[in-house]
Amino acid sequence: MVKKIAEKGYVFLVLALMYLPILMVIIFSFSGSAHFTFNNGFTFDSYKELFTDAPKKLWDSLLNTVIIAIISSVVATIMGSIAAVGIYNMKPRSRHVVENINQLPIVNSEIVMAVSLMLFFTTFAFPNGYTRLILGHITFCTPYVVLSVMPRLMQMDSNIYEAALDLGASPIKALFKVVIPYILPGVLSGFAMAFTISLDDFIITQLNKGASTGIDTLSTYLYSSLRKASGLRAFWLPAFSIIIVIVVAAVLLINLRSYKKEGRKKEKINEKNR
């Protein structure tokens, strides 16, 4: 009994510590400044500043973040899913090589990838700005898509596809009616992963955005604001509070739904077994 309470206490202590900084951001978004003091009392001033007085740069960088994430995750999802089908059909040896290359961007240190891409882009004079950023993001997003589609393909009985062909479906029809519906969950989770990783990226964007282009994403704009001697302006805390609430709600909603679905499935199986 004591052991159980101690275990629970320990887990929730770690959880509480993980959430403390995030709670600080939300709480002090009502302080009217970004300095983590309640000198002005409880106020909505920071929120007012966010929506009326925030620099245009903030909205530009938000838009850049989203555009880059959408384009690169869509391309990564298409290329990664198609590639997964190909890799699945490779001979073990070449498959092993390709899988290792696929793993490289995931395990590699981000800074090494960022500088190697930067050298590559400058050596071959790639156009500055969006081109470099989107190509870079596709490079580190696609491996995650491949990794999340592969398990679905492995689970799939290849006879299903053959059966569809034997029953007269054209390969294209079999692809759309059999294979794609089957691997869809993997494709979608790969897309979600690619999208969030791209949204969250800092290092690769920071080193490849090019100083002269003036392009910033949310994280690189935050970084340059943090380095200013005057410190952060008040609107940053409410901006991130809103993002935090949206992110937490979205992730919990999606996962609780699938969790419930699984629970229902388990219940059904239990009933059958009874």
Partner: peptide
């Protein structure tokens, strides 16, 4: 045309050679 073809992986392999391995070689 069968889906059991490894050619589907070629565009991606090419992409990775260009954007992952070539940059490391340049490094």
């Amino acid at each position: 045309f069968r889906l059991t073809r490894k050619v589907f992986a070629y565009p991606y392999v090419l992409f990775m050679l260009i954007f992952v391995l070539a940059p490391l070689v340049i490094l």
